[in-house]
Amino acid sequence: MTAFTVHHVTRYRYEQPATLCHNEAHLCMRSTPDQTVDESWVIIDPAPDDRSERIDLYGNWVTYFSLQSPHEQLQVAATSRVRRTPTTRHESEWLPWEAARDAPRGVNAWDLTIESPHVPLLSELHRLTDGIFTPGRPLAEAVAELCRRIYDEFAYDPTATSVSTPLSDVLAGRHGVCQDFAHLAIAALRHLGLSARYVSGYLETLPPPGQPKLKGADASHAWASVRTPTGTWLDFDPTNALVAPDTHLTVAWGRDYSDVMPLRGVVMSSGATTQLDVEVDVERVDPSA
C-alpha cells in the first residue's frame, strides 16, 4: 500500500472584478476498490458566501459554491490524503471481449455504452479497433493493444487541442492530450457495444527513482475504464499506454469530461478574459516519516 498527498490548486484572475460567480467542482476524491480516501477537502478563497456538497448520479462528490461580492481572483485548493493498493485484477478481464459486449447490464452501464456530449460515435472509429478486437480475443489483451495503438498513432501535443475540440478533429489531426485520448478510447469501445467510462484523476508528480515521469503528471489527468463481463472495471491509460496502472489516483468518473469537469463556473464580470492557473502536486508519503 502506498500513501499519497494530493494538492490541486486552481486560480482565476479576472480582468475586471467579478460581481457574482456560481461554481461546481469535482475535486473531492472518491474511494474505489483499490483506493481509500482518508481525507479530501476543498478550500475556497475568498471564502464563499454559499456552499453545499452533494453526490452526483455517478457517485462522485460535487461541491457547489458561490461568491456574491466583487472579487478579482478566486482560488480553489483541494487537498486529499489517499492510500492506494496495487490494482486488483479480475479473471473476467481475460474473457473474450464479446462476453463484455453481450453481458446484461443495468441502466448506469447502458448510459456508458451510448454516445455522450464529448463522445460521438463516429463511423470512422472502427479503424481504431479493426484487427484488434478479433473474435474470441481476451478483453484485457485487446484493450492493451487499443491503448498501444492510440499511444503510437497519436501525438501528445498540449497545444493542438482545447477542451472544446471535437473528437472528429482529434481523430483527423492525430494529436491531442489525455482527455482527447480517453474520449477516443471510450468512443472506440462504445462503438463496439462495450461500456466505457471517463476517469479523471492524478499521476504521481515525481516518480520513484528509475521510473520515467508520465505524461500528464503536472495537471489533472484523465484516462478510461472498460466494463468486464462480470461488471468489474478495467482502467487503462491511452496517453501512457498503461493497462490497470497501479498508482493512478481517481477523483471522479462519468460518461465523459463534461460530467466530471474539475471546476466550472458562470461568472458575472464586465471583463472579457480570465487568466487561469492550475497546479497539481502528488507526493508519495514516506511511511517511515
Binding site: M261, G265, M268, S269, T274
Partner: peptide
C-alpha cells in the same frame, strides 16, 4: 447590467 459567461478549468 453585467453579462455572464461560462468558465471552466
Amino acid at each position: 447590467q453585467i453579462r455572464s459567461r461560462t468558465v471552466r478549468s
